[in-house]
């Protein structure tokens, strides 16, 4: 039952894009193909699960016992950079044609979902178990993929619907995602 609560919380109530504004740039920026959102979500999952596992161990056994919490930001960003590089190198060897076409989607270091979820999970007084961290991470990526999917479908429609010139592109996408966020507030109080 706890697991479903965590999944529902991360998926609808506390969606990273709509309530914490993480990864807004990747959702809004040239996101107009539905296939791309699945690829982005898959790559994010492959990178974020090892990143959060390593950061969990780092926070629990090094940063907290030795009272060096102020190194958190630097350590986390270095781990993310390392894992993203390793995944890119492996993908380049294993699936070269896929990597050549979609190499842009492997640059996830500047995507704020990865670091943002680490910082949201591992606060200075955290008492979570590893399993619930993992479930929260997976549910977060699913929620992020849901918003990517919705926005790519709506952006496709927005481009042909004849908006005023100043509204085309980013402004109408922002207002659309605002209305989406207003709709998601309706889930408040379910859990």
């Amino acid at each position: 039952m706890e697991i479903f609560k965590v999944i529902f919380f991360a998926f609808f109530l506390n969606n990273v894009v709509l309530t914490h504004f993480l990864g807004v740039r990747s959702v809004l920026w040239k996101n107009d193909q539905i296939r791309m959102s699945f690829i982005t979500g898959g790559i994010m999952a492959i990178i974020m699960i090892p990143v959060n596992s390593i950061n969990f161990l780092l926070q629990k056994y090094i940063l907290l016992p030795y009272h060096i919490e102020f190194f958190q930001t630097i350590f986390f960003i270095l781990i993310i950079l390392l894992i993203a590089k390793i995944v890119a190198v492996i993908a380049k060897k294993a699936i070269p044609s896929f990597f050549r076409n979609y190499s842009y989607y492997f640059h996830v270091t500047s995507n704020s979902v990865v670091l943002g979820v680490c910082l949201l999970l591992f606060k200075n007084d955290f008492t979570l178990s590893y399993i619930s961290c993992l479930i929260y991470t997976i549910a977060t990526i699913l929620g992020y993929t849901l918003i990517l999917l919705m926005m790519s479908a709506i952006t496709d429609h927005n481009e042909v619907s004849g908006n005023p010139k100043a509204m085309q592109g980013l402004p109408i996408s922002l207002i659309t995602i605002g209305l989406l966020a207003l709709a998601f507030i309706g889930f408040t109080g379910v859990v």
């Binding site: 309530t19 504004f21 402004p171 922002l174 605002g178 209305l179 207003l182 507030i185």
Partner: peptide, 10 residues
């Protein structure tokens, strides 16, 4: 609330 941020920014 968060939706207001998106709409004002847009």
């Amino acid at each position: 609330l968060p939706p207001g941020a998106f709409v004002v920014f847009g």
